[in-house]
Computed example of a mutant assay.
Amino acid sequence: MITCKSTVEMTSNTSSSSSLVRIAAAQMTSINDLTTNFNTCSRLVKEAVEAGAKLICFPENFSFVGAKDGESLSIAEPLNGPIMQKYCSLARESNIWLSLGGFQEKGPDDAHLCNTHVLVDDTGNIRSTYRKIHMFDVDVPGGMVYKESSFTIEGKDIVAVDSPVGRLGVTVCYDLRFPELYQQLRFQHQAQVLLVPAAFTKITGEAHWEILLRARAIETQCYVVASAQAGKHNDKRESYGDTLIIDPWGKVISRLPDRVSTGIVVADIDFSLINSVRSRMPISEHRKPLDFWKSVSS
């Protein structure tokens, strides 16, 4: 069993204004034990509720990280299976929304699954599902070779959904490197808060994690909530950590003091700040339509 320190980090902005609503982001070190991971999630949910959060975001692979090839496939279940139903019950009993990024949803056959981001409301009902579009098929310099597409079916649909903390743009991990998805979420789907549950490798996280997250916030003028896996899951796999919440101006407003600890961060989503940033820097009015770029090419 992995034991990690639990930490709660709050922003100083605790105004009771109606334009503010609190969100939490969890960091954890999931292992290949469904019960252990669920118990960790339950504890972090309790901390989020006590902190006044209306939604808590968990990282990719929150419920399970396999220690050997094929292990994730062996535990994959449909969304109405017992694993997800336990989390639905947790949301209902705790009266809080859950963002469950990177659930191993059973695919069309025994050799494939879907990497699915599930949003559960505070009554325990699944409100929305997003299946990860961009597959992590990468030879990490100085690290391992990853081939997510060998066992995962890529998604096709962009997903945004209304929630108590604003209109959410739903993504997973490697999607972060593809800004056009986030542009679609903001400008075609009116997202206000972008969710990025992740399990970034240590090497890629050190190089690009915060930079990419802040860039997505700046170019979309959205809050970005990035919940991360952290530390060593097993002998073969280690995640970077560094759970962050970033405001629409690109400022980091909340992060865990310890990059690899287990715990939550919270911040207030300020809808007046979103409106202010967007009105003062009206990029939605200045963007060129897609056919503009086609017309200037030769």
Rank of each mutant, 00 (worst) to 15 (best):
P164M: 04
P164T: 02
L168G: 04
V159C: 06
D162Q: 02
S149Y: 08
V170G: 06
T171K: 07
V138F: 14
V159S: 00
T152K: 07
P141K: 03
D162R: 06
G166D: 09
S149Q: 05
V140W: 08
S150R: 12
K156N: 14
E148Q: 15
G143K: 10
Y146N: 11
V165T: 12
A160L: 03
L168K: 05
T152V: 15
V138I: 11
S150L: 12
S149F: 00
R167C: 05
P164H: 02
P141M: 07
P164A: 02
K156I: 12
T152Q: 08
R167G: 03
I158K: 11
V145Y: 11
V159N: 04
V145N: 13
C173R: 01
M144A: 15
Y146G: 08
T171E: 07
V159D: 03
M144E: 15
V165Q: 01
M144G: 01
K147A: 14
S149V: 03
D157S: 11
Y174S: 10
S149P: 07
A160C: 12
L176F: 04
T171R: 11
M144I: 15
G142R: 02
I153G: 05
R167W: 00
V140Y: 11
S150I: 03
D162K: 06
G143Q: 13
D162L: 01
V172S: 08
V159Q: 02
G166A: 07
Y174A: 06
A160F: 02
G142H: 06
V165S: 10
F151I: 14
K147W: 03
T171I: 03
E148P: 10
C173S: 10
V170T: 09
G143I: 11
I153H: 04
T152E: 10
G142S: 05
R167P: 01
L176S: 15
V172G: 07
E154V: 04
F151P: 01
I153N: 12
K147H: 14
V165M: 04
A160K: 07
G155D: 09
E154R: 14
R167Q: 00
V140S: 09
T171C: 14
T171L: 11
M144L: 14
F151H: 14
V159Y: 01
K147M: 09
T171A: 15
K147E: 13
I158P: 00
A160T: 15
S163R: 08
C173H: 05
